[in-house]
């Protein structure tokens, strides 16, 4: 199934269909992850691959193609399929050859299971006392990695902001000062359904955020789900309505605040006598309680940062859409 959808994205020429197929592909791979006992990963992939990614791609499509003309490519392309096909076949064959040295699927004695994993599995119950090992590894044992990842997300958010957030006409005006375009506003059914769904989505986001210690979930997934609620609201009610609730500046501040919360938690641990991001130091009498507090704060920081970045990215794309009609008008004059 996965291969079928992946191949479909090669052969379909209509970009809209390709993006839809890609969404299906992501949803299928989320199911695949669940099958491989990775519920956390499946949750993330479902929220992102099948939710946010197609929305962003459709946004790009809408921005880059004013009319929906299918493939205006009449002249001969310089891209012939033969050479890439040969390259791909050779690389694939080499990789297949390499798999013969790999440990078999599901082998409990494979090298990847014999180094640090046993410690995480056996000790995390006493050291951190959180049932979900993925959360404890993510936020505590591998806190540095995760901090780095959060920084990457933050940087990408800034990058999108720098590329799309400001108009290039040099006037310094920002995109949200322009008129509103919400073509969906008149659809009553959509409106009512969205009104029912949005509080539930927000509630679920909070559940995923704060129950991440016990069940699959955590800051990354919660942030994405939280952002989804706002994206849905934007699509239904338009950008201006959203900006009445949250100012864009506020989103940018929260973006930074999330990263800061993570970083400062580490610093506080340092000031209280531990190493950086060593949550044991947060509570000298009860290190496990310190771990719980540290993980909660760090996950909160991750969630806030991810939610803010996703919202800011989407709003930037949506904001560009407002501007383009004016462009075409100017071009026509």
């Amino acid at each position: 199934m996965l291969i079928a959808t992946a191949l479909a994205s090669v052969f379909i020429r209509d970009l809209f269909a390709v993006i839809m197929v890609f969404g299906i592909y992501s949803l299928l791979s989320a199911g695949f992850f669940l099958n491989l006992n990775a519920p956390d990963v499946a949750l993330t992939e479902a929220a992102i691959g099948a939710g946010i990614a197609p929305i962003l791609m459709l946004g790009t499509l809408a921005l880059t193609r004013k009319k929906w003309d299918p493939e205006p490519h009449a002249k001969k392309s310089t891209h012939t399929p033969l050479l890439p096909l040969i390259v791909v076949a050779i690389t694939g064959a080499a990789l297949v050859y390499a798999t013969f040295d790999m440990p078999y699927y599901g082998d409990a004695e494979a090298p990847s299971h014999t180094h640090v994993a046993p410690r995480y599995i056996q000790e995390s119950g006493q050291e951190i006392d959180i049932p979900n090992m993925v959360t404890s590894v993510l936020a505590s044992y591998r806190g540095f990695d995760t901090l780095g990842e959060v920084f990457v997300i933050f940087t990408a958010g800034i990058g999108v902001l720098a590329l799309l957030g400001f108009l290039s006409d040099g006037s310094g005006r920002k995109y949200w000062q322009f008129a509103d375009t919400a073509s969906l506003r008149r659809h009553t059914v959509l409106h009512v359904i969205a009104k029912i769904l949005i509080p539930l989505i927000l509630l679920y986001a909070f559940y995923v955020q704060f129950h991440g210690d016990y069940s699959p979930g955590g800051g990354f997934q919660a942030g994405v789900i939280f952002a989804t609620a706002f994206i849905l609201y934007t699509m239904i009610s338009g950008l201006q309505a959203v900006y009445k609730i949250i100012k864009p500046e506020l989103i940018y501040w929260t973006m930074a605040f999330g990263v800061m919360l993570y970083g400062v938690t580490g610093l506080v641990a340092m000031f209280m006598g531990g190493d950086y991001l060593d949550y044991n130091a947060l509570d000298h009498h009860d290190p496990i309680h310190g771990q719980h507090m540290g993980i909660l704060l760090v996950e909160l920081g991750v969630g806030i940062c991810v939610a803010a970045v996703m919202m800011s990215v989407f709003f930037n794309f949506a904001g560009r859409g407002i501007r383009l009609p004016e462009d075409t008008k100017e071009g026509g004059q």
Binding site: N37, A38, T44, G49, S112, Y120, I121, V137, L138, M310
Partner: peptide, 19 residues
């Protein structure tokens, strides 16, 4: 149990990927 470490790496990688 399944190995939690790759799960952590991939979970963050997915979010970084979308960014």
């Amino acid at each position: 149990y399944a190995n939690p470490l790759p799960h952590v790496l991939i979970l963050t990688a997915i979010v970084v990927g979308i960014a």
